[in-house]
Amino acid sequence: MTDTAPALPQQRGQELPPAPVSPTVSVPEPTPDTDLAKLMTAFRVLQMQHARVLHHESHTRSLNATDTRFVFFLAAADGQGVTPKQAGEYLELTTGAMTSLIDRLEKRAHIERRPNPEDRRSILIHLTPSGAEVAKGIGAVYTSAFREVIAPDDRAQLAAAFDRLGTALDRHSRAVHDQATVAGLVP
């Protein structure tokens, strides 16, 4: 069998020509924002720990996380009460799921239904002393953690940052929902 491949210049005793040189093109590399990356990682860890605390504290009180979120929502209403529709929108629950939630927490004596003085066809949901104790007990876990790690002088600034972040996330969520609605993906 004979080799029929052409002989390279080097094999014939000649030098190879120099390889062509690519032009130097300067493409700026995106500089990673390491502080932002650290912040995102810390936020994810915080979310995970929050979910664990919420689950554990709810389970200890024979509640689920949605029950507890509703109790906190009512606690934030400062005794004003909320309509089932308002609570359902906040918790993103259907009317049926909201009714089941209200029935469940009312049976446990954590909430009560009261007539709505502004609309006789409607009711307002209020915390009972038992529900307020649930909110206070679980809230104490978070209060203790914040007190432990956030200096008093930094609390107002952090609260303002949380408010701005919440507003930005809400704005983004609404924009995505609006786009999905226009595209016919959600009712």
Rank of each mutant, 00 (worst) to 15 (best):
Leu16Val: 11
Arg52Gln: 15
Met40Gly: 04
Lys38Asn: 14
His56Pro: 00
Val141Cys: 04
Gln14Asp: 06
Arg69Asn: 12
Lys38Gln: 15
Ala168Trp: 03
Thr83Cys: 02
Ala175Asp: 14
Leu63Ala: 05
Asn116Thr: 04
Tyr90Trp: 05
Val176His: 03
Leu74Ser: 01
Glu29Ala: 15
Ala140Met: 05
Pro30Trp: 12
Ala159Lys: 06
Ala75Tyr: 06
Ile102Asp: 02
Ile150Ala: 14
Met48His: 07
Gly81Trp: 02
Arg61Pro: 00
Leu127Glu: 03
Thr99Asp: 04
Glu118Cys: 02
Phe72Val: 03
Gly81Tyr: 07
Thr31Ile: 15
Leu127Tyr: 02
Arg12Glu: 06
Gln80Trp: 08
Asp153Ile: 15
Ala19Val: 10
Pro18Trp: 06
Leu124Pro: 00
Gly137Phe: 02
Thr95Cys: 02
Asp3Asn: 15
Thr60His: 05
Arg174Phe: 12
Ser26Glu: 06
Asp163Gly: 10
Gln14Val: 08
Ala180His: 09
Ala151Asp: 14
Thr66Gln: 01
Ala159Gln: 13
Thr181Phe: 07
Leu46Asp: 06
Thr31Asp: 09
Met98Cys: 07
Val21Phe: 08
Thr99Gly: 05
Leu54Cys: 02
Ser173Glu: 10
Phe70Tyr: 05
His110Arg: 07
Phe146Cys: 12
Ala180Glu: 14
Ala156Asp: 11
Pro6Thr: 14
Asp103Ile: 07
Pro117Thr: 06
Asp170His: 13
Ala42Trp: 03
Ala19Leu: 10
Asp119Lys: 04
Gly79Cys: 03
Glu148Ile: 03
Gln157Ile: 15
Ala151Ile: 08
Thr83Trp: 01
Asn116Phe: 02
Leu124Gln: 03
